[in-house]
Amino acid sequence: MELVHRKMKLKGVENNCLLLIFFLISIGLGAQSDKVPIPVLDGEWWQIASTPDLGEYNTKEQQPVDFGIWKAKDGTWQLWSCIRNSNFAPGTPLSSEYSTTRFLYGWEGKSLFEKDWKPQGIKWTAEPSLGETPGGMQAPYVFKEDNFYYLFYGDWQRISLAKSLDGKNFERVLGGNGQPDLFAEYGYGGNTFYTQARDPMVVKKGNTYYCYYTSHADEPINDGAAFARTSVNMRDWSESVMISHTPAHKGSDPRFSDECPQVVYLKEYNLYYLFVTQQYGKDSQTTVYASQNPLYFGVDDDSRKVCTLPIAAPEIIIEDGQYYLAALNPELNGVRIIKLKWE
């Protein structure tokens, strides 16, 4: 009986220890969740670009949309934006009902804090002889490493690459096929319009480059998602991984609910933040996710959702240790910047 009694006491101690362990774990998880910072727009916006005067290509509907911002070798700030709905080079129809008229237009600022940067004219247009869709230029992103500036851009169907020594004048990097494309994405329904891989951005972790971009999912039909691929040399890229699939916002088109992905790594928290846009204009919305896995932020799963912001097409800038966020004007007539803090 004494032996049984001792076993029962030990069993009770074990149970209490297990309960204590589970309690401590739950406290730890709660504390960890409290340490996930939220990005907050801080202060007032300042506008750096407006709808440009395109001369013979002007239309009442033209809009500067997805863009890239970077500091060139001479210290000036460069902004290249995709201009849509212009009268530029009608292009080749991708279907019986569709053609595109896009190019990249530039502005230059002496300082990140300067307002109304100086227009620089048309900076980048499609090269049909290199397999690019006429009038198909889309969002640029510039990644600087060592002495080179690498320009990733969409050519309407593919993600392509160019490079520069000064951050102003770029030349396409041609692959074995004699074209600048790196990869495309899945199509469906036999309609090549929906093979679009676009809105690239790149981060590097260790010796691996992560290219994030948006495209369209196989299932469900007519739906959009954000994807990523990895590389160790910027030329050979892995198969794609779907990293997020965000619901549409206020009845917006679900094909465009994971636009303009931007990823930021907060080293002190070992967290990657993904910003993806669901809607442009006055009802703009961008959803922000946080994850320790740079290749997964939640596919039909909002457990990693941190917040939403009333902005569209964000780009994160870090200058002198301070975070800034650039985004489109709600009227889609320019680009603006604001400080960004983490609370």
Rank of each mutant, 00 (worst) to 15 (best):
K71T: 08
V264Y: 13
S240N: 12
D258C: 15
P93L: 02
L174P: 08
V232K: 11
D300P: 11
C211N: 13
D34I: 14
E268Y: 09
W70T: 02
F103E: 04
Q78W: 00
G136I: 11
E132C: 01
W342D: 02
S257P: 08
P134K: 06
N222S: 10
A89E: 13
I338S: 05
T125C: 11
F170Y: 13
Q196Y: 10
A162F: 03
T192D: 10
I21S: 06
G43V: 08
G106K: 03
V40Q: 12
Q63K: 14
M234D: 09
E239S: 15
I243C: 00
I243E: 04
Y212N: 07
V264K: 01
L332F: 07
N147M: 12
K123I: 12
L18P: 01
A31E: 11
V36E: 00
D253C: 04
L94P: 03
Q138T: 14
Q278G: 03
E315Q: 14
F148V: 11
E171G: 14
I21H: 12
A248P: 11
G176S: 15
I337V: 12
Y188S: 14
A162P: 04
T192F: 13
S303P: 09
N15P: 09
Y141V: 11
T59C: 01
N191D: 12
Y324F: 13
S86A: 06
G298V: 07
S50Q: 09
E14G: 12
G206R: 06
K110D: 12
P64C: 03
E268N: 14
E185P: 11
S252A: 03
A217K: 14
F170N: 00
P39L: 02
N16Y: 15
C82E: 13
A228Q: 05
W77G: 09
R172Y: 08
D223T: 15
R229L: 02
V263M: 01
P93M: 02
L18A: 14
H249T: 05
